[in-house]
Amino acid sequence: MIEPTATVSVARWRDADGVYACYLNVGGRCVLIADEPRRLVDEHFQSIVPADSNPALARMTHAQLLPDGGAAMAYARAEPGEKNVLVLDCSGAFQTSFAAGDGINQFLLDGQGRFWAGYFDEGVFSGDPIPSNGLARFSQDGRLEFGLAEHLGSAGPDVDDCYALTLDRQDRAWICAYSNFFLGYVDGQSFHQVMVKAPVQGARGLLVGERHVALIGGYKQTGLATVIELAGLTHRHIQLVTETGASLEVRRVSCWADMAVCWSAQGVYRFGLNDLVQIG
């Protein structure tokens, strides 16, 4: 077990009742997937897409907001060739769809309207050439633009399971992946490795700023935050706690740039990289 050297109390945003998932979007906007019935709602829990507007909503596991008020949603599991990313307008009407492959663990939309998908192991080892990349980028019309494994070839590092994925403010995709837990980012058609091995294994969230990055979570320590200074690659471990002082037990976390939202039985919490960096 890693021993944190400091604690940070994070702000409780709302209760977790009726929340299936929360996802940050470009600019820090949050979209939630509500359950029973499953539907997209905004930060005030008002419906973005009506629950009865499209039967595909019942299978939705990931969602992102579009600049025009519509939404893109994805299913984690899919049959070979099944179109599991759907783009809807603000009324819930179908616009387009494409096959992103089975095993979507992370699903993001960048500021240029491109889709990013990180895959868990069932997709990576499915034999489908799209998720076998571990990390893939798609154009607005669903065309595969970049696959990490195909780009790296035998040089590695391998992505057996995309544990943590985020976008920075320059639309670069940062990744920390099982099984080596390397840290790096994709910029255009190039991959840059920052660390061969991150100082924590099993992190599920990744915040990125100009001088620091932070990994959220770790094996058996879901409320751990590991802050890394990019200049010297030094790090320190911080325990995230609730307003009552209890250790935060993170069920899932979503990040965009230097912002994070996480949810658990304790509630839904939002915090930023600065909250972690400023701790003395």
Rank of each mutant, 00 (worst) to 15 (best):
S254A: 15
I216G: 02
V19T: 06
G127L: 13
A76V: 06
S247C: 11
S264I: 09
G142H: 08
S254G: 10
L230C: 09
V8I: 13
E145V: 07
A71V: 15
F94A: 10
G217A: 14
A16F: 05
V200A: 14
Q193V: 13
A214C: 13
Y269M: 02
A136N: 07
A265G: 03
V19S: 05
G217L: 06
Q106I: 05
A100I: 03
M195A: 15
N54E: 10
L167A: 01
I130G: 01
Y163S: 08
G127H: 07
A155Q: 12
M60I: 00
G156M: 12
D35H: 05
V159A: 10
T96G: 08
Q239E: 15
G218N: 12
A93P: 04
V124H: 08
G153W: 09
Q140T: 01
G156H: 13
V87W: 00
Q201T: 11
R251D: 08
P37F: 07
L152S: 04
S154I: 10
G113M: 04
C90F: 09
G123I: 13
A72P: 10
I279L: 15
A72W: 00
F182G: 06
L152W: 09
A136D: 06
L65I: 11
H237P: 07
I48V: 15
V85Y: 01
G92C: 00
R204L: 11
A136S: 11
G127Q: 12
I48M: 07
Y119K: 07
R211E: 15
A63C: 15
W263G: 08
P4W: 03
E82W: 03
D187F: 04
L24G: 01
Q193A: 07
S47L: 00
R14A: 06
M195D: 14
F45K: 11
G70H: 04
F98R: 12
T7D: 08
T226N: 11
P4T: 12
V8F: 07
D258F: 02
N54C: 13
A6F: 08
C22K: 02
V213N: 03
T61W: 08
Y163N: 11
Y20C: 02
G153F: 12
T61A: 09
L240V: 01
S139F: 13
E79Q: 14
L108W: 09
G217T: 15
G81H: 11
L148Q: 08
F191P: 05
V213S: 03
G81F: 09
Q201S: 15
V41T: 04
T7K: 14
H151D: 13
D89M: 08
V268A: 05
W13L: 15
A76N: 13
C22Q: 07
Y269H: 12
P37Y: 08
G27T: 00
V31Y: 04
A21T: 09
Q106R: 13
G232L: 04
D158G: 00
G223L: 01
D171K: 01
H62Y: 10
E229T: 14
S91A: 12
D102L: 06
A100H: 00
S179E: 09
M73V: 12
Q64V: 15
R114M: 06
